[in-house]
Every structure is written in structure tokens, then in C-alpha cells.
Amino acid sequence: MQVNVQMFGEFRVLGDCLELTLPENSTVLDLREFIQNQVGEFELTELLKLSKFADEKAVLTDTSLCKNNQILAILPPVSGG
């Protein structure tokens, strides 16, 4: 299945959005591990551990199931205001 992951903050070094192909029934944890394998050269491994994934309504837990064609966002530690 396909998921699109929007990049924010420091993850923008990877581009604005990643289009990923994941196995059916993948969870957010699976997505995290998939991205983990792609970000090593950018020194984002530690940041990824501190980051969350979200859809437009909520921050997701690692056990949340990904859906086909879902648009997600990766949220590194925040610094607004």
C-alpha cells in the first residue's frame, strides 16, 4: 500500500513529502522503521526517535494502522509560539 508522509522542521532536508510503499497492515511503528532505514545518511536517526506521526486530526501511536493512500506527517519536537 501507498502512504504519503509530509516532512516538517528538520525533516525538510528529505524533501516536502515522501511517497512510500509499505506492506499491507503496516503500523506506524513499521513506517517509523522503514524511514529509519532511509535517513541514516542525514543524521536524523536520533531525531526520528523523538518524533511522532500524525494525520490531520490527531497524533498517532506506534500501534496505529496505516491506511492505503493515507496522508501522514512526521512531527519532530515542536518549537512554536
Binding site: A58, V59, L60, T61, S64, L75, P77, V78, S79
Partner: peptide, 11 residues
Amino acid sequence: WVKGHALCSHG
């Protein structure tokens, strides 16, 4: 990028 606060998730 400014270092920030890690978010919490619920659910």
C-alpha cells in the same frame, strides 16, 4: 532549526 519539545500521542 530550534530544538523543541517532543509531542505526546494518545489513543
